[in-house]
Measured scan of single mutants.
Amino acid sequence: QIFVKTLTGKTITLEVEPSDTIENVKAKIQDKEGIPPDQQRLIFAGKQLEDGRTLSDYNIQKESTLHLVL
């Protein structure tokens, strides 16, 4: 699982696999929060994550925290 922290300070927990794409993660966030993926920007280690890449591409491991910017 990974954590996604929103600007409001809320933390969302997501069940993911390293092979999941960023697009996939955004879809999971939409399921939980109702935020359309095209409004979501995910930041990890100061980098904006691209939809077509996977979590493992960015070396995002379990218990990692991503930041969600709208």
Rank of each mutant, 00 (worst) to 15 (best):
Q1N: 11
Q1S: 11
I2Y: 05
I2W: 02
I2P: 00
F3H: 11
F3V: 06
F3C: 06
F3D: 03
V4Q: 00
V4L: 05
K5A: 07
K5R: 13
K5Q: 11
K5G: 04
T8H: 14
T8M: 11
G9E: 04
G9V: 02
K10Q: 09
K10L: 11
K10E: 09
K10N: 08
T11I: 15
T11N: 06
I12N: 01
I12W: 05
T13W: 08
T13E: 08
L14D: 01
E15V: 11
E15Y: 13
E15S: 12
V16N: 02
E17A: 09
E17Y: 11
E17K: 08
E17H: 10
P18A: 10
P18M: 14
T21G: 03
T21M: 07
T21F: 08
I22F: 02
N24M: 15
N24A: 14
N24T: 13
N24F: 14
V25S: 00
K26T: 02
A27H: 14
A27F: 12
A27E: 10
A27I: 14
K28W: 05
K28I: 06
I29R: 00
I29D: 00
I29E: 00
I29Q: 00
Q30T: 10
Q30K: 12
K32Y: 08
K32T: 08
K32A: 13
E33M: 12
G34K: 06
G34N: 08
G34L: 04
G34S: 06
G34R: 06
I35P: 04
I35R: 02
P36M: 06
P36E: 07
P36I: 05
P37M: 15
P37G: 08
D38G: 12
Q39G: 06
Q40M: 13
Q40F: 15
Q40K: 02
Q40T: 05
R41Y: 12
L42Q: 00
I43L: 13
I43D: 05
F44D: 02
F44N: 03
A45D: 14
A45Q: 15
A45W: 08
A45F: 09
G46K: 04
K47H: 13
K47D: 07
K47S: 09
Q48N: 10
Q48D: 14
Q48L: 15
Q48P: 10
L49D: 00
E50W: 05
E50S: 07
E50R: 07
E50F: 06
E50P: 03
G52V: 07
G52T: 10
G52C: 12
R53Y: 14
R53D: 05
R53L: 12
T54Q: 06
T54I: 07
T54Y: 07
L55R: 00
L55F: 03
L55V: 08
S56Q: 15
S56C: 08
S56F: 11
D57M: 05
Y58S: 03
Y58M: 04
Y58A: 03
Y58R: 01
N59Q: 09
N59H: 09
I60K: 01
I60Q: 01
I60M: 04
K62W: 14
K62E: 13
S64P: 03
S64I: 05
T65Q: 06
T65Y: 08
L66A: 02
H67T: 14
H67P: 01
L68K: 00
V69C: 14
V69W: 09
V69D: 07
V69Q: 10
L70A: 10
